[in-house]
Amino acid sequence: MGELLEVTNLTAGYGDGPSILDGAHLSVEPGKVHCIIGPNGAGKSTLLKAICGMLKIRQGDVKFNGQSLKGLRPDQILRKGICFVPQERALFPKMTVRENLRMGGYSLDDRSGLERSIDEIEERFPILKERRDQHAGTMSGGQQQTLSMARTLIIKPAIVMLDEPSLGLAPKIVQEMFDIMKMMASEGITILLVEQNALMGLKNSDWGVVLDLGRTLFKGPAPEVLADPRIQELYLGGKKAA
């Protein structure tokens, strides 16, 4: 079966620095939420950045619908339907909410269609309609995160990659973000989630992917990963490793 996204033996790093990812593998299940967990420095964010083209692939390959993404620029990869929401939320603080949404559809050439899509998104996320003429930088953390996630929907992506959407948000708001994420998945969008809070991340995901030292240790259904004693010990603050 042709996989939607298939990462094989991926090696990547920053600039001329050492490789952070060193032989990572990943295959995704369409329309499911995949939570990538692992200790600090395991290469979780690096994996997402390599997939979206922000980092050069040194070895290995990333295939989307059977086509290699190697050597493509981020804007070219975006046009294929892979959206990345980085940790810093990637908003334009001094542009209005509406302008931020419009930038989300920058790659679309159908401008009137774009305005319609923005209207639709405003209907679905009333807070964005309410704040449409406000500068994005003046919104709360949760609202900003809502904006950056909602913005991905404009291009009707196949895959959305979220790098720590919970960062700096109150627990109650975090759950709202996960709910938006699950709603996106229920519409057929495949989600790759990187989450520092592995417990929360896995509870809201279908699949768990464990990364360490730049390699994929294993992938399994999220409940199984949650229950795995190794994971309990290493990442979930269960019994300390001896």
């Binding site: 922000m54 981020p74 975006l78 989300g104």
Partner: peptide, 17 residues
């Protein structure tokens, strides 16, 4: 708009195409 976006957040602008 692309110019303003790039001024405010270069990486984000690139990620949006």
């Amino acid at each position: 708009n692309a110019i303003r976006a790039t001024t405010q957040n270069r990486d984000a602008a690139e990620l949006l195409g």
